[in-house]
């Protein structure tokens, strides 16, 4: 896919994945790969940033004799995600109005 994903969009997608279920780094990357080319190395700073901003928190859970770090969304993270979703919708409409020649009349449908 030829479009680049910016940091804000990546943050939003990670928040959305974690909101559905508490999950761990490797699985988050697998989900993201459905939409974007991304490696675990790209994800690491994203997770750190979200943790520092207290949008995500972590806990360790034992899995096959080792610890696996799970990520959980915070209340602040859920608020941020809602905001990201609203921003995305308005962004998408603006892009579509140009790229897909969608006029103002289409706005009511969504």
């Amino acid at each position: 896919m030829g479009f680049s994903i910016n940091a804000g969009l990546l943050d939003a997608m990670v928040l959305s994945i974690v909101q559905k279920n508490d999950t761990y780094g490797y699985e988050i990357t697998q989900y993201l790969r459905k939409a974007v080319e991304i490696s675990e190395s790209t994800l690491y700073p994203v997770l750190r940033r979200l943790q520092k901003g207290e949008l995500l928190e972590t806990y360790d859970k034992e899995y096959m004799g080792r610890n696996r770090r799970y990520y959980r969304i915070t209340a602040k993270g859920a608020d941020a995600l809602e905001e990201y979703r609203e921003d995305w919708l308005s962004h998408k409409k603006k892009i579509d109005s140009i790229l897909m020649n969608e006029g103002a009349e289409c706005y009511e449908q969504t």
Partner: peptide, 14 residues
């Protein structure tokens, strides 16, 4: 340690 355990986990999960 945070970075090392993250990447170690990636190797084990993969």
């Amino acid at each position: 340690n945070d970075a090392l355990s993250y990447y170690e986990e990636v190797f084990l999960d993969a």
